[in-house]
């Protein structure tokens, strides 16, 4: 078996699931292509992709063995500009968490550049490829409408207590809970520009499902210290890095 992530807990298994490209992610909701474009806010729905260079076929590129070996992704082939989607994951049992995103993106998506912080996680790609991967990230178990935020800027919220509807704090209130429908609606794009019509993201996942799918260890869920195998591997990495630079044979 591929050693994707150590541990015997459900959290460890979830981390393996997300990171294993062979694992088929649960699709939890339908977001139309047009709505994905609206949420991203990089262009209007139906608008042509902006180009930063001519299509590769029309470019007189020098011979290069790496170019032969690596098939360009669609957006690169077409000359698309590079755009982004950024998520904020609540520490209160959001399904995906920042480093899990980075590790899983790198095994699932080609042609990306991803950056990880405590309170936000960005992924950049050529625009048409970004739209495709964004759809996956929004429709599948990567996303919960209440505990996952889509936020280009003004990101604080991952560590804050939840509001009375179970939603993560967002100073720009991009995702709002509609009490009548019980669904969360996106009323602004990811950088906070108002949308003409809200995008209905759907109902929040219930607490039980969130806890079953989450990739964060917490003592009120699964405690990391109880996942003895995972902790041992982490400690072993520390010891190896420490001694490897000093005396790999005898230690110190």
């Amino acid at each position: 078996m591929v050693q994707i992530y150590p541990g015997t807990s459900q959290v460890a298994q979830n981390r393996r699931n997300f990171t294993n490209p062979e694992y088929e992610l649960d699709k939890l909701r339908e977001i139309s292509d047009e709505d994905v474009v609206k949420i991203l806010g990089h262009k209007a729905p139906g608008e042509e992709y902006k180009s930063v260079h001519p299509p590769l076929d029309e470019m007189d590129e020098p011979d290069d063995s790496v170019r032969e070996l690596v098939a360009p992704i669609d957006g690169a082939k077409a000359g698309d500009r590079i755009r982004y989607i950024q998520f904020v994951d609540s520490m209160y049992f959001a399904p995906a968490q920042p480093f899990l995103r980075a590790r899983s993106y790198l095994s699932r998506f080609r042609g990306i550049d991803t950056g990880t912080l405590s309170g936000r996680q960005v992924v950049e790609a050529r625009e048409r490829d970004l739209e495709k991967l964004s759809k996956t990230l929004l429709e599948t178990e990567y996303f919960d409408t209440a505990r996952t935020g889509i936020r280009g800027a003004g990101v604080h919220g991952h560590s804050l207590r939840l509001d009375e509807n179970g939603l993560m704090f967002d100073m720009l209130r991009r995702q709002v809970f509609n009490k009548e429908t019980g669904k969360v609606e996106m009323v602004k794009d990811q950088v906070g520009r108002e949308l003409d019509e809200p995008v209905v993201l759907g109902e929040p996942l219930d607490e039980e499902t969130l806890r079953a799918k989450t990739t964060i260890y917490r003592i009120d869920g699964e405690a990391y210290k109880d996942d003895v195998e995972a902790v041992k591997v982490c400690q072993r990495i520390h010891v190896s890095r420490s001694f490897g630079a000093f005396n790999p044979v005898t230690g110190w």
Binding site: P98, F99, L117, T215
Partner: peptide
Amino acid sequence: EQHSRLGFYGFDLQDQCGAANVF
């Protein structure tokens, strides 16, 4: 590993390589 997050890139890059020069 516990929280699947740390600081920001510029903050924790040294924390992820610093063990190698402690001893």
